[in-house]
Design a protein around this nucleic acid. Structure first.
Length: 153
DNA sequence: GCCAACGTTGGC
DNA sequence: GCCAACGTTGGC
């Protein structure tokens, strides 16, 4: 059982939006980065925990927790000409992009700010504290995940 | 297969 | 809205 961090822009999709979905579950589509794709396709498993991170907004930081309820399967938006995520070069026989389904677990009492995460000396490996790290899907070490949970709750 | 140009990301 | 840091693209 592993921990992950997924970035979301709350103007487009937030922890509240996830909680408001039917079954509190949504497919995490639109990831168009090969390293993130590899995580989605190969490594993220049912039961894994996912920190939901709010980026490009007023309160940047970790907003809550979700869990994976369906492991990697092809992202249908790549084949939809009307979708902003449409990829005409992707072959339906060998899809290029994958997604997982995540279910809401909890919303933290307040967003754990990025500034606070950065000020924690024990958290040094997490992608969001590293300069220039732009992955939208990233692994979280077990011990760092436990620290984040303690800080957030 | 190199690498410059370009587009995107995302904190500030 | 600025800009640094990346990833991707495409000519050669």
């Amino acid at each position: 059982m592993n921990y992950w961090l997924f970035k979301a822009e709350p103007a487009a999709f937030s922890i509240d939006d996830l909680a408001a979905m039917p079954e509190q579950t949504e497919h995490w589509d639109g990831v168009r980065n090969y390293q993130a794709r590899n995580y989605l396709r190969d490594e993220i498993k049912v039961g894994d925990n996912v920190f939901i991170y709010h980026s490009s907004c007023k309160n940047i930081g970790i907003a809550g927790l979700a869990e994976v309820v369906k492991s990697g399967y092809p992202d249908h938006t790549q084949f939809d000409p009307d979708s902003p995520y449409h990829d005409p070069k992707s072959d339906p026989e060998n899809p290029r992009w994958y997604m997982v389904d995540v279910k809401f677990v909890e919303k933290f009492p307040s967003v754990l700010p990025l500034s606070k995460i950065k000020s924690e000396p024990a958290i040094s490996e997490l992608g969001v504290v590293k300069k220039g790290h732009r992955l939208s899907i990233m692994p979280v070490l077990q011990n760092e995940a436990e620290i984040l949970l303690a800080l957030a709750r």
